[in-house]
Amino acid sequence: MTSSRQEIMEQQADIIGLLLHHIHAPLIDTERVRGVLPVAAPAEAIRVVVGAAGARRADRLTAYEIPLREDDGLRSGYDVIALLRAVLSTPHSLGAGVGAVMGMPLVRVDPAVVEPAETTPDDLTLRVVRTLVHPFTEDRLKPLLLGFLLLGSDRLRLYLESPKAGPGTTAVDLSLSGALTALLTALPSLIDEQYRTRPADDDPHCARVVDLTDW
């Protein structure tokens, strides 16, 4: 794996931590984060899935693709939030529809034509408090979380970096009503179990899917 690809994956993992707040708190109006998807190499981008609270069906969601690389480095989660707010304020003029992915409209955001939304006092307060509560550390959890998507009221898909499972991203489906604490503890070994694994024919964001919904 190239150092550039590893850099993008680690940045994506950091951005997820910043976007989690918006599962509950709207980005704007009623629009909330419903998922974060990894884009396969060589693209250096992130896809953020947005919809109303409780939205799970693909036809009620929209995926916004935002490039992570910029001239002086990589975009942060705060940069991604500012761009999303700008696009969601006037979606028809700032986003270019490029088709669909997993049944959701896919909109590619061009930062060259988008003026990021202003940072609010609440944003700054959250940034300060989050930094103190969850300080950055070089010691990353394994497997590395690259994304997630709410697939139903009781189904969550996690996108993980797991070299032992094979090349490419591994998706894990789990039941939200299951024994989550025990499952997450056992996850590093469970994602390598071949009899639970199937090809990801319907999901371009991963190479395989491991079904742990019955665990």
Rank of each mutant, 00 (worst) to 15 (best):
L94W: 02
I28M: 11
Q12R: 15
P116S: 13
A40S: 06
G97M: 13
H92K: 12
H92S: 14
V36Y: 05
G51N: 03
I191E: 06
E7F: 11
V87F: 07
A82M: 10
Q194L: 05
G103Y: 13
P26H: 06
I46N: 02
R155T: 14
E44W: 02
L184W: 10
L83N: 02
T213W: 01
V210Q: 02
P67G: 02
I15R: 07
V49N: 00
E31T: 10
T213P: 03
T170N: 06
M104L: 12
L174P: 00
I81W: 02
A45Y: 00
I28Q: 12
L156W: 12
G147Y: 02
E193L: 08
V49D: 00
G54A: 07
Y64E: 00
R5A: 14
V33R: 09
S76G: 11
G73M: 04
R85H: 06
L124A: 08
Q6W: 11
T30M: 13
D203F: 08
P91L: 03
G168N: 08
E7L: 14
Y64A: 01
L212T: 03
L19R: 00
L190V: 02
P116F: 08
V33H: 06
P42C: 04
A43K: 08
I66Q: 00
L132F: 13
T125P: 00
S189F: 07
P116L: 12
E31V: 09
A200W: 08
L174M: 13
D203T: 08
M102V: 15
T119W: 10
I16Q: 02
L150I: 11
A186W: 09
L145G: 07
L190A: 09
E44T: 08
V113F: 09
V109T: 05
A40I: 01
L61N: 01
A82P: 07
G17K: 03
L187V: 09
L124D: 11
T137N: 12
A86Q: 07
S3N: 13
A117M: 09
P143V: 09
R155F: 02
L18H: 11
G51I: 03
H134F: 15
P121M: 07
C206D: 04
P163E: 12
R208M: 05
H92A: 12
L18K: 09
G97F: 08
